[in-house]
């Protein structure tokens, strides 16, 4: 079953030029697709277009079918039925993704209440379950976002995204703002949760090594267009497009220095 299909998707800036051009890809149930590219390649805009969350003024053209619903041009009410259920999203910067004035427990409770209709004690218990699932201690529920670490904040954002029990999780540079040791922990957590629930994953990152660890297939974006796509193994081992090759070569070049010292 295809959960998400983008078909000739374009995203247009208010000044008329296209920031994403003719992008097509599909994510099957339980599959993991990575979008890779450098800054300005249109990775995040693609994710936002999929969720119907493009910034004011930006318009999407073409087709995005998410959980059987056409997202492009859909009304707010229609989008509300697919957001959360078909797909939910984890953003790059958890400090701006969370409400600074609301305790963590209440923020996690929001989507659980809406999705599962729980109240009172049952809701509280579900919040605690959601926090323990992302390996956070109970006391975090009473904290404000600024009182916990960056890694803990991203775990909270993941708990909120998972609370809706989505079929597809969209993660937009979920570990880029984190320290490298924390990044490793969060990636392991994410990997386990996605596998455990049989969720599909759309994983966006500028870091080829991270994507190659997480995604089975990748799409390489450059200036809004896909230049190459395929199985991660094939694309990284034998890139065909010159741009992909330069990306892969750069990644190997930097890493080679470290591999030399610490194989």
């Amino acid at each position: 079953m295809t959960l998400l299909r983008a078909d000739d998707l374009s995203v247009r800036h208010p000044d008329g030029h296209d920031l994403v051009r003719g992008l097509s890809f599909a994510v099957e149930a339980g599959a993991r697709l990575g979008l890779v590219g450098e800054s300005g390649s249109g990775k995040s805009l693609t994710a936002l277009a999929v969720m119907g969350l493009l910034p004011a003024g930006m318009t999407a053209a073409g087709g995005v079918v998410l959980g059987g619903t056409q997202v492009v041009g859909a009304s707010g009410r229609t989008l509300d039925r697919v957001r959360g259920r078909s797909a939910s999203m984890v953003f790059q910067e958890p400090l701006t993704a969370l409400d600074p004035l609301m305790r963590v427990g209440r923020q996690v409770a929001g989507p659980i209440r809406r999705r599962r209709g729980l109240r009172g004690g049952a809701l509280r218990a579900a919040v605690m379950d959601a926090l323990s699932e992302v390996r956070l201690p109970e006391r975090v529920a009473g904290a404000y976002p600024h009182e916990i670490s960056g890694g803990q904040r991203q775990r909270v954002a993941i708990a909120m995204a998972l609370a809706c029990e989505p079929e597809l999780l969209i993660a937009d540079e979920p570990t880029t703002a984190l320290d490298v040791t924390v990044q490793a922990e969060v990636l392991t957590l994410l990997d386990g949760l996605v596998a455990g629930r049989g969720m599909a994953l759309l994983f966006i990152s500028h870091d080829l090594a991270v994507v190659a660890d997480v995604a089975d297939r990748i799409v390489v974006l450059k200036e809004g267009s896909a230049v190459e796509s395929g199985r991660t193994r094939d694309v990284v081992r034998e890139p065909r497009h010159p741009y992909t090759r330069s990306l892969v070569d750069s990644a190997w070049a930097l890493e080679g220095e470290l591999d030399r010292l610490a194989p």
């Binding site: 490793a184 870091d207 190659a212 660890d213 990284v236 990644a251 470290l258």
Partner: peptide
Amino acid sequence: ESVPRLSRAARL
């Protein structure tokens, strides 16, 4: 250990 590396990537 935590540095993401192509040489250790699971999908490669």
